[in-house]
Amino acid sequence: NQASVVANQLIPINTALTLVMMRSEVVTPVGIPAEDIPRLVGMQVNRAVPLGTTLMPDMVKGYA
């Protein structure tokens, strides 16, 4: 099963992502693939992302 990117903490709206904010986990539904974590660093979320939430492509500005 493919691992997805999951929020390791509450990520406030418009926050630029850092490695410490994300972890990989096998979840359903599948979100952004864990191998894209390096690409996500520095990108901003367009909404608040609660701890444990799977990051979906539409949550990250410029990802989709």
Rank of each mutant, 00 (worst) to 15 (best):
57 P>K: 12
10 L>F: 08
23 R>N: 10
15 T>L: 03
41 V>E: 05
27 V>F: 03
20 V>I: 08
50 P>N: 14
20 V>L: 08
54 T>Y: 05
13 I>W: 03
22 M>K: 00
52 G>I: 01
34 A>N: 09
58 D>C: 15
40 L>T: 02
3 A>I: 10
10 L>C: 11
34 A>K: 05
40 L>M: 12
30 V>Q: 11
5 V>P: 02
2 Q>R: 02
63 Y>H: 08
4 S>Y: 12
53 T>W: 10
62 G>A: 05
28 T>K: 02
57 P>W: 03
25 E>C: 04
34 A>D: 14
24 S>I: 07
12 P>C: 07
2 Q>S: 13
13 I>N: 09
16 A>T: 08
13 I>R: 04
34 A>Y: 07
57 P>F: 03
62 G>E: 12
9 Q>S: 12
21 M>Q: 10
60 V>M: 14
13 I>T: 10
32 I>S: 02
59 M>R: 04
57 P>A: 13
23 R>S: 12
49 V>R: 03
8 N>W: 07
54 T>A: 13
61 K>H: 10
38 P>D: 10
52 G>F: 09
22 M>N: 00
4 S>F: 06
36 D>M: 10
40 L>G: 00
44 Q>R: 04
64 A>R: 06
18 T>P: 02
24 S>H: 15
29 P>K: 06
58 D>W: 06
48 A>Q: 10
63 Y>W: 13
18 T>W: 06
5 V>M: 02
11 I>Q: 01
2 Q>P: 15
57 P>S: 11
44 Q>M: 13
37 I>D: 00
61 K>V: 10
52 G>P: 00
52 G>C: 05
19 L>N: 06
2 Q>C: 14
57 P>V: 06
26 V>K: 02
22 M>W: 02
64 A>P: 12
26 V>G: 14
39 R>S: 03
60 V>D: 01
22 M>L: 10
3 A>K: 03
12 P>H: 11
59 M>T: 05
22 M>Q: 03
23 R>C: 09
20 V>Q: 14
25 E>I: 02
41 V>L: 10
8 N>L: 10
9 Q>Y: 10
8 N>D: 15
45 V>H: 00
12 P>L: 05
43 M>I: 08
29 P>N: 12
59 M>Y: 13
44 Q>H: 04
23 R>D: 10
41 V>I: 13
3 A>E: 15
4 S>E: 00
9 Q>E: 12
16 A>I: 06
40 L>R: 00
38 P>N: 14
24 S>C: 06
63 Y>N: 11
22 M>I: 13
30 V>G: 04
61 K>G: 04
63 Y>C: 04
4 S>Q: 05
42 G>I: 01
25 E>A: 08
59 M>Q: 05
47 R>L: 09
51 L>C: 15
15 T>A: 06
48 A>L: 05
20 V>Y: 09
11 I>N: 00
30 V>H: 09
42 G>N: 09
2 Q>A: 14
48 A>Y: 13
5 V>W: 01
5 V>I: 11
59 M>E: 06
29 P>M: 12
29 P>S: 10
19 L>R: 15
16 A>L: 15
40 L>D: 00
26 V>N: 08
2 Q>D: 15
20 V>A: 08
5 V>N: 00
51 L>T: 13
38 P>S: 11
28 T>C: 15
21 M>E: 03
42 G>H: 07
39 R>K: 12
